[in-house]
Amino acid sequence: MRWQDLAPHHRLPPVAAGMRIGLYGGSFNPAHEGHRKVSLLALQRLRLDQIWWLVSPGNPLKDHSNLPDTAARVAQAKAMVSNPRIVVTAFEEAIGTNYTVETIAFLKQRFPLVHFVWLMGADNLAGFHHWRGWQDIARMVSIAVIDRPGWTLSATASKSAHVLARYRKPENQASCLADSTLPAWVFIHGPRTALSSTQMRQQKK
């Protein structure tokens, strides 16, 4: 595969050795202010160089039969971003990955000198143990969990949180997470948003 021959939204963003990059995956259907606020918080608290919004072909755990194509979702997400350190890409579709564990394995192999951090909301931590290869994900990248209204207790009481409890870092060490020995994760509190793509789609109906 020649990356330069792909559509721009399918290409991998440029990187340099030693960069600290947050990976924020999702359908982004649509991208909204909540995504942007989480990203800005993560950039600051985790001391990241960039955050990549990984616009997925479709969540394997959800029905995506009515999902708009990736090019449309990428364009909408780019219009929302307005920050040069937040990069929108749909390269997962180009390499044919459907699961986060596959995406991370690909990136780790291709960019072994880049420090990746997986970003997820507290709602995702609550169901993280249902993800394919979730413990492999924790061994490959550090994880930052961003608090969300109504999910704090269920997330921290979840199966995955219990299994990974001994690897949890104090929140005041969040800025060092990208350089931590793996597994490593942190739960970040801050300004919370209840916005969700699902709610926004329902409001349009």
Rank of each mutant, 00 (worst) to 15 (best):
H32W: 08
M1G: 15
P84D: 13
A178E: 04
V87F: 02
T193N: 12
L23H: 06
T156C: 08
A79R: 11
F187H: 12
R85Y: 02
V88D: 01
Q109T: 13
L182A: 10
A126E: 11
T181E: 09
D179W: 03
R20M: 08
H32S: 13
Q44G: 06
G58W: 02
L182R: 15
I143C: 07
S142E: 06
M80S: 11
H32E: 10
G150D: 09
P112G: 09
R45F: 00
A155G: 08
R45P: 00
N98Y: 02
V87H: 04
N172G: 00
T89M: 03
R166T: 14
S82A: 15
H35F: 04
I86Y: 02
V186G: 09
E33R: 14
I21H: 04
G34F: 01
T70V: 14
P149M: 09
F116S: 12
E102A: 14
F111I: 04
P14G: 09
R148H: 09
N98M: 10
I21K: 05
K204G: 00
P8R: 04
G25C: 05
F91W: 12
G150F: 04
G25A: 12
T181Y: 01
L125S: 10
V101N: 04
A79D: 05
R85K: 14
A71R: 10
P149Q: 13
S158I: 05
N83V: 02
V88W: 01
G127L: 02
V186F: 06
G22K: 05
Q50Y: 08
E102F: 03
H130K: 15
Q199C: 00
L54H: 04
A194N: 09
P57K: 07
L48S: 04
V38Q: 08
A157E: 13
T198F: 01
H189A: 13
A17E: 11
P14D: 13
G127D: 10
D49E: 08
I86D: 02
Y24Q: 06
A174D: 08
E102S: 13
T100G: 07
Y167W: 14
V88A: 07
V186E: 08
D49T: 02
C176D: 15
T152A: 15
V87M: 06
G34D: 03
Q203M: 13
C176G: 08
M120K: 07
L113K: 13
P149F: 06
W151S: 14
H162C: 12
M1N: 11
A155N: 11
R168D: 02
G26K: 03
Q50E: 10
R45A: 12
V186D: 09
N83E: 14
L119T: 07
G127A: 10
T103V: 04
Q4R: 10
I143M: 12
D49M: 03
A157R: 15
T97A: 13
R47Y: 00
R201M: 09
I143D: 06
E92I: 05
F187Q: 08
H35C: 08
